[in-house]
Structures are given as structure tokens and as C-alpha cells.
């Protein structure tokens, strides 16, 4: 179970497969997820209220989508010896071509995305560490 930190409409997703790996996913790994919980934009999105709820949610509960892991609670060692650990696991939904589904991210992402050529997600993120 991971948090989804983009505005595609998913809030909590479940990982069902890690691409090209038999181990647990790390930051920058591509995974397949099932959307478990939808984000409700109702009262929170005051200014963006013109868009109806169904249109704002690009994905629905039960959808199978691709995603990229951007934060892990498991500590990750960098080449310089420092170690990063986040409090939660989070991902960003992407389509099969690798473009992010959402248009905005809220929350910081790991810097490892740059090495794995996810610069589009990095540019959307408000902060990377």
C-alpha cells in the first residue's frame, strides 16, 4: 500500500508487481498498482471547483495503472555514504508511455529519480532531496 501524491485522483494504491525486479521496489522503480482509495476533491478544491468530481478524478477505484516510486520508508544509501529515509511510501501514477497522469505533485520526492530518467516527475515536484 502506497500513498499517491499526484492529482490524478488516487489517494492510496496497492502495488501488485515491480517491473524487472523480483525484489522490493526502490525509489525510481516502475511498478503496477491497483487504485484502492480515491481522493475526494469536493470541499478541498475551492478554486478548482468548476471541474466536476468525476472529471477531476482521472482514475477510479479498482483501476490497474503503472506508477513510479518516489519515496520509501526503507532507508536508501547514496553513493556518498549518506542514507535517506522517509516516513512513508509514495508513488506517482504514469501511463504506459511513462508520462505522469496527474499535472501536479504535492510532496517531496527522492533525488534518485534523476539517475533513472524520471526528470518529468522531478520537474513537477515542489522539492527533491
Amino acid at each position: 500500500m502506497l500513498n499517491c501524491i499526484d492529482n490524478s485522483g488516487a489517494a492510496v494504491v496497492e502495488c501488485v508487481k515491480v517491473f524487472r525486479s523480483k525484489r522490493a521496489a526502490k525509489i525510481g522503480d516502475r511498478i503496477i498498482v491497483v487504485v484502492q482509495k480515491q481522493r475526494n476533491f469536493g470541499p478541498e478544491s475551492g478554486p478548482g471547483g468548476s471541474v466536476s468530481i468525476s472529471a477531476a478524478n482521472k482514475v477510479r477505484r479498482g483501476d490497474i495503472r503503472h506508477a513510479v516510486v518516489v519515496r520509501t520508508a526503507k532507508q536508501l544509501q547514496r553513493p556518498d555514504g549518506s542514507v535517506v529515509k522517509f516516513d512513508d511510501n509514495a508513488c506517482v501514477l504514469i501511463n504506459k508511455g511513462g508520462e505522469p497522469i496527474g499535472t501536479r505533485l504535492n510532496g517531496l520526492v527522492g533525488k534518485e529519480l534523476r539517475d533513472k530518467k524520471w526528470s518529468k516527475i522531478l520537474s513537477l515536484a515542489p522539492m527533491h532531496l
Binding site: 519515496r71 532507508q75 555514504g81 549518506s82 542514507v83 535517506v84 529515509k85 522517509f86 516516513d87 512513508d88 509514495a90 504535492n106 510532496g107 517531496l108 515542489p126 522539492m127 532531496l129
Partner: peptide
């Protein structure tokens, strides 16, 4: 950072 706990060694 952005309401997410981060720990670094």
C-alpha cells in the same frame, strides 16, 4: 519537509 518526515545519515 512538506509535512513528510525525512531522516538522513
Amino acid at each position: 519537509l512538506t509535512r513528510v518526515g525525512v531522516e538522513m545519515w
